[in-house]
Design a protein around this nucleic acid. Sequence first.
DNA 1: CATTCCCGCCATCTG
DNA 2: CAGATGGCGGGAATG
Length: 358
Amino acid sequence: MSLISPSTSASGSTTYCRKQKSLGLLCSNFLSLYNREGIETVGLDEAAARLGVERRRIYDIVNVLESVGVLVRKAKNTYYWKGMGAIPKALDDLKAEGFRNNDEQIDCKSVKVLEDDEDERSPNPVVSVQDIVKESINEPSVLFKSDNRKEKSLGLLTKNFIKLFICTKSDMLSLDDAAKILLGEARNPSLTRTKVRRLYDIANVLSSMNFIEKTHHPETRKPSFRWLGFTGQTYGQTGSAISTVDKDLKKRAFGTELTNICFKRNKLVSPIDVAAEYDVKPLHLAPNQVGRSTPASTIKSCDGDSNKVKNTHGFESLASTYRPQYQNQALRDLFAHYMDAWKSWYSEVADMDQVKVI
DNA sequence: CATTCCCGCCATCTG
DNA sequence: CAGATGGCGGGAATG
């Protein structure tokens, strides 16, 4: 069934292709591997072996998947598989959490959770993004506390990134803006760069799950990501077949990709071939597996096409093209709002900062 | 040249 | 202390 494009390049030998090792593809493979009935737990080592990647990579996707509720840490090396069905609630929680952070004064009187996406005009306009996101910044006591490592985790970043979309009217953001917003005051070009790198990682996996989609801002040609929301089912399995229609059967389907073959960036076949150590059980979707440095003649070539690892079943990826942009004005306003909020906030803390690195 | 983002070193955090 | 985690940013692909 489906290989991706039948390798077009005749080269046939160890052709390094970055796309084959993207986090997005890995995420798709991961999902198609575990998103099925009967799965209740996921072992990191096993996952790494079966997907043919280093452990480090598994941590990356597992962290973002956990932020969305798909996985829950069980113990060292193990996670509970909650499945796609857990996503809706996770998103709701994030949403509530985001809103809760800004109207603490109102207390638990009326937890106004703007109805779905139709929050066009809420009596209480968006406050400041910093409030919604509330990423703990360096406190004066930071000098004593071991650098709050947790605060910089991919998982938290993922949550905040998502909040930016669901707790706001904006549905389109460039990673650069997102980074600036999430960084709050620490407006350091260096930090921003690193943040952006992380956001790329996150965006890639969220894209593969169709939570977001890459496009270009209508006016500015800046590449941005648009929130698509979790419309869906189609994720199959998980028993509960939702009734809602399926305007999105055309999306959300993974799989069929084979595992990420492992070769170093520089053609050289690494001596340490992770997968080989384990008894790699070829799952149905993995036509081939790496074997101790075997120059996989089976490597699937890069998508002959333009881009996007975009999942799977080729024909369905057509949904990812451009489409008429609306609300240009609204977006502009929103950005203005962001910039203002962040600016004022910046000056607000500008006095005691200067703690961080440079 | 600019953007995207993989790779894996090595600091931290468990157990 | 060994093994598990996972920041972080250099620099290689790609656009």
